[in-house]
């Protein structure tokens, strides 16, 4: 899985307008872009983990103790 390209604040701003209908200030768009770029870097390891077909999403404590 290749590393993603850095997100730009202008892209975040456009996306916020076009998906959420919400304008972001330049400051917030820059902060969100910075956050997401950091998260993308942090999440690369987990994104590359081979997951078995049988592994369904673990939500609450059921996954710990096998209760429904």
């Amino acid at each position: 899985m290749p590393d993603p390209l850095p997100l730009k604040p202008s892209f975040i701003s456009d996306l916020s307008n076009q998906v959420w209908g919400r304008s972001l200030s330049e400051q917030d768009a820059a902060a969100v872009a910075g956050l997401l770029n950091g998260l993308n870097a942090d999440m690369q390891a987990f994104r590359k983990v081979p997951i078995a077909d049988g592994d369904e999403p673990a939500t609450t404590y059921s996954a710990v103790e096998g209760e429904p």
Binding site: I12, L15, S16, D28, V32, L35, L36, T59, A63
Partner: peptide, 29 residues
């Protein structure tokens, strides 16, 4: 100003990314 970008940022992460993390959580447990 510290918190608002964190809360806004989560809206731009994909549902697939979230669900894969939940699947990885099961494997890790």
């Amino acid at each position: 100003d510290e918190i608002r970008p964190l809360l806004l940022g989560g809206q731009f992460l994909s549902a697939v990314n979230y669900l894969q993390a939940l699947r990885v959580r099961r494997m890790i447990r």
